[in-house]
C-alpha cells in the first residue's frame, strides 16, 4: 500500500543548533520523518518542542546567521528528475523549490501577508517568479485559485488588502498562494490555531480535499491531538527536539506506545469521562540549558526507571515498519 514511490520528502536524522548569546540551543536532534503524496502527516508536540524549526528546515528558512545544521539530510524527491538534498543545495536551486515545489502556510495569516499588497499581487508574484506566465495568464489562474479555495466574490477578494478579509478568508488566500505553482508538498505550521472552531473545521476539510484531489503531501503542524485524529493519515510525536513516536494515525490512536503520547492523549478532556481528573504530566518541557541525560522525557515520565536517565533510547520499529517508538521500556509497556 505504502509504496516507496509515494515518498516525496525524507528528513533523515536531522540535528540542528542555534547559536545565541545565551548559549547553544540544540533545537532538533536526530529527527526523521517521511511525507507521502496525497497524505497528511501531522507533527505534534507541546510548544517549544521544535515543530516550527523542523518545518522551516525543509525550506532552510531558519535564520542563516545563527543556525547550524549539524547533521542529517532532507531530500525532496520530485516525480521527475533527480532528488534534491535541501541542506546542501545552492541558493538558486533552493529558491526554485521554495513556493513552487514546496510551499508553506503559517499560523497567523494576518501577520504573514504583506499589509500593503493586494491579494491579486500576492498571488500573481509567486506564479510570475516560478512559472513562465504572462501577467494576464497569472491573473486568470489567480481567479481559478480563489475559486479552488472556496471563496466567492472572486474579484472583490483579489482586489482586497489583507486587513479587509476575515481570519478564515486570509488563511484561504494563504492556501491559494501555496497552491499557485502546483506544489508537491505543503508545509502547514499550525494553520488553524488562531481560528474559531467552525472556521478551523472548514480549513481542515479544505486541506484534506487538496491533499486527496491534487495528490499533494501535507505536513500539518499542530499541538491539538483532536485535530490530528480528525485529519491526519500519519503522525509523528515530537518532544524537546526529538522524535518520540511515529505511526499511522489509526495505529497511534488505537494503541499509543510511548509514555509521552499516552499522557498527551490522557490530558485531552473527553466528555464521556466527566468528573474524573485529567491525566497530567508533572513539570515542564526541559530548558535547553540543562537537558536531562539519558531519555529526554525521563524527569517527567510516569513510567521512568533508574536506567532511563543513563542511556538514550534509540528510535525502533515495532514489528511492522509503520509504527516506531523511542523508549527503553517499549517491550515491557507494549499494549496491543
Amino acid at each position: 500500500m505504502n509504496t516507496n514511490n509515494d515518498i516525496v520528502l525524507k528528513i533523515e536524522n536531522l540535528s540542528l543548533k542555534f547559536h545565541t548569546p545565551g548559549g547553544i540551543i540544540p533545537a532538533v536532534e536526530d529527527f526523521s520523518l517521511s511525507l507521502r503524496r496525497g497524505k497528511i502527516h501531522a507533527l505534534v508536540g507541546e510548544s517549544g518542542s521544535g515543530k516550527s524549526v523542523t518545518v522551516k528546515s525543509v525550506l532552510r528558512l531558519n535564520p542563516e546567521t545563527n543556525t547550524e545544521y549539524t547533521s542529517g539530510r532532507i531530500e525532496y524527491i520530485p516525480s521527475e528528475g533527480e532528488p534534491i538534498e535541501i541542506l546542501s543545495a545552492n541558493e538558486s536551486t533552493l529558491r526554485s523549490v521554495r513556493g513552487s515545489k514546496i510551499s508553506m502556510i503559517f499560523q497567523e495569516p494576518g501577520r504573514y501577508l504583506n499589509p500593503v499588497m493586494r491579494v491579486r499581487q500576492l498571488l500573481t508574484e509567486t506564479m510570475m517568479t516560478h512559472l513562465k506566465v504572462t501577467k494576464q495568464e497569472a491573473l486568470e489562474k489567480a481567479k481559478d485559485l480563489i475559486r479552488l479555495v472556496e471563496l466567492n466574490d472572486v474579484d472583490r477578494v483579489l482586489a482586497s488588502y489583507p486587513h479587509e478579509l476575515s481570519g478564515g478568508m486570509k488563511q484561504r488566500v494563504m492556501i491559494a498562494i501555496a497552491l499557485s505553482c502546483s506544489p508537491d508538498i505543503i508545509l502547514a505550521d499550525e494553520p488553524t490555531t488562531a481560528l474559531d472552531v467552525t472556521v478551523q473545521a472548514k480549513i481542515l476539510a479544505l486541506l484534506k480535499k487538496i491533499a486527496r484531489e491534487l495528490n499533494i503531501a501535507v505536513l500539518l503542524i499542530t499541538h491539538d491531538l483532536a485535530v490530528v485524529y480528525e485529519s491526519a493519515d500519519e503522525v509523528s510525536v515530537m518532544y524537546a527536539g526529538k522524535l518520540m513516536e511515529s505511526s499511522t494515525s489509526g495505529s497511534l490512536f488505537k494503541a499509543p506506545q510511548h509514555p509521552y503520547t499516552r499522557v498527551l492523549l490522557g490530558a485531552v478532556p473527553d466528555i464521556s469521562r466527566r468528573g474524573q481528573p485529567l491525566l497530567s504530566i508533572k513539570g515542564n518541557i526541559p530548558d535547553s540549558a540543562d537537558r536531562p541525560t539519558g531519555c529526554i522525557f525521563s524527569p517527567r515520565c510516569p513510567e521512568a526507571r533508574d536506567f532511563c536517565s543513563l542511556s538514550v533510547p534509540a528510535f525502533e520499529s515495532l514489528g511492522n515498519n509503520a509504527h516506531g517508538v523511542a523508549c527503553l521500556r517499549t517491550r515491557e509497556l507494549f499494549r496491543a
Binding site: E46, S47, H223, L264, V268, L278, L279, S280, I281
Partner: peptide, 11 residues
C-alpha cells in the same frame, strides 16, 4: 497553555 499544562491547571 499546552494540553499537559492545561490538565494540571484544570485538576
Amino acid at each position: 497553555l499546552d494540553v499537559s499544562v492545561q490538565a494540571q491547571i484544570i485538576n
